[in-house]
């Protein structure tokens, strides 16, 4: 555990909490992609199956449980409790276009051809593209609420910090996991355009609106 990894994990947690609080306080999930949230839940479920088979540390297990519960909670709020506020006609990304190729790729490129390993690989690949329905939704409506952009910034920062963590681990421990690194880089690159808008607009007190 190094500081980049820790801050990355906390940034990830902060993102999830920002989103949950936004939905809870405003009693509305307008502008949030339910499809991205379903994909993130699927990511956590398939990745953390080792919660019962492979104990790493109390920190690791507790964080896994928190991520699982909070992401499932977000899906519950969106599809049940506040379903009436869910913007489904703007959330039209076809998730099978992500899930099917990612599923195929995880069978082809993995560390080990075993069920748990393939599911872990699937979750790593899926996470890298799971934000696309949300970004697609913002590009359709042309804007995002400021709180939603804070959520996206925290979520994007998490994987960017993990990249720094991997560079650090490579030099200090000789550690590298090519699958995680390549997927993590793809994931971070997808946020670059958003990061630019966030820094040039949201941080200057303006709302995130895409140029027409």
């Amino acid at each position: 555990m190094n500081v980049f990894r820790l801050v990355g994990d906390l940034s990830h947690l902060l993102a999830i909490i920002i989103l949950l609080l936004k939905i809870w306080k405003t009693r509305s999930c307008a502008g949030v992609s339910g499809k991205s949230q379903i994909l993130f839940s699927l990511v956590f479920i398939t990745r953390y199956l080792d919660l019962f088979t492979n104990f790493i540390s109390v920190y690791n297990s507790v964080m896994k449980i928190i991520y699982l519960v909070t992401s499932l909670g977000t899906v519950y709020l969106m599809y049940f409790k506040f379903k009436a506020t869910y913007d489904s006609n703007h959330d039209t990304f076809r998730i099978e276009f992500l899930v099917v190729p990612v599923g195929g790729l995880s069978f082809l490129v993995n560390h080990d051809f075993t069920p748990l390993e393939i599911l872990w690989t699937f979750s790593i690949y899926l996470e890298s593209v799971a934000i696309l329905p949300q970004l697609f939704m913002i590009s359709k409506t042309g804007e995002a609420e400021t709180i939603t952009s804070h959520y996206l910034f925290a979520l994007g920062s998490y994987r960017a910090l993990y990249i720094v963590n991997w560079v650090y681990r490579y030099y200090t421990e000789g550690f590298f996991d090519l699958i995680a690194i390549v997927a993590g880089c793809v994931q971070t690159i997808l946020y670059c355009d958003f990061f630019y808008l966030y820094i040039t607009k949201v941080l200057k007190g303006k709302q995130l609106k895409l140029p027409a």
């Binding site: 990894r5 080792d50 790493i56 540390s57 550690f175 590298f176």
Partner: peptide
């Protein structure tokens, strides 16, 4: 250096 597995990460 051989690739290692990032299973200790979240």
């Amino acid at each position: 250096r051989k690739a290692t597995h990032a299973k200790d990460e979240l």
